[in-house]
Amino acid sequence: MTVPEDVASYPFPLPHDTYRISANVEEAGVERATEAGAWGSTMLHVGPDHAEAIVRRRTIFGREPRRFVAAPHARAASWDAMLWLLERMARERPGEAQLEGDGARRRWRNHRLGVEAEFVVGDDASLPEHPLAFAAAQVEEDVVVLGDRGDALWLDAGLVTAASVWSLAFDAGMSFAELHRPVPGDEARRVFERAERFLLRLHPGEAWRRLNWGLQLDDEADLSLDAFPAWGPRRAALDVVDPGREVFLRTEVQHLVKLPLTGSVLFLIGVRPLSLGRVATVPGWAGRLASVLETLAPGTSAYKELDTLGPLAAEWLRRQAHAPAGAAAT
């Protein structure tokens, strides 16, 4: 039986039967095998629904301009981020995207999206929009630029349309420590302090990644506070009939890049929802996810808003393990 592509390339985030918040960073661009296949040889994800994902975030950003922020002082860092993203895309998909020219004038071609643009590096007027917004429109990932100054990181710019219960417009301008203030407990706080020191110490050009995860209803990636009216009431009511189809594991593939020209940190968040039904097709995944949900520390469970959804998902996953083969397919 062939494994469907979304499962085969899924970055399943739970290597153990228990989970606690940790920095869990590893080198970026390194392929990692899973029980169902492998993921991670590229940093920018291009899945079967790539074009739809790009259109979807364009629509959100077009409707709500506050999904984009850029401090005036983030100009150089935004160009730095843009060049890094376009070069990365061209390197990972040479047949589909090219960045040409080595002087100030460069030509970008993204055949998959039908985008062609010529611009002058550092000249904002040569682009149809802000460099970071331009680059963000070429990739599926949400992009955030963190400036490195005064021995801390600061949220200087970003385009985010799939935040998980946070809002870019509120978080703009915050320090890394302020951004992570809602984390549960001193241990988690220390994890984020160490993570910030780690990021501050990276050398220009280095790229790392980590996985984050949660559960959500439906496969809509945009769980921002901004979009709360669309998803909040349903989450509160929790009227789930078929968890296999309605509850999704939300894995966030987060890349952390120390940008080469400015030393700012580019933070990329790729959201990969997978239905519990799909998770259950890989018995190792179903078992570990159920076990993690059953043993989650209360603070972590509350932080991830899993107090109700977690037990519900765990129970469903356990039931599938005892159900006749084929019952879990969706």
């Binding site: 002082h73 150089a76 860092a77 400036g147 100054r149 050398h203 220009p204 400015t262 030393g263």
Partner: peptide, 12 residues
């Protein structure tokens, strides 16, 4: 070594 940054300007 590849370039190391220890003395950057403050963008703000």
């Amino acid at each position: 070594t590849p370039p190391r940054s220890s003395f950057p300007p403050v963008g703000t």
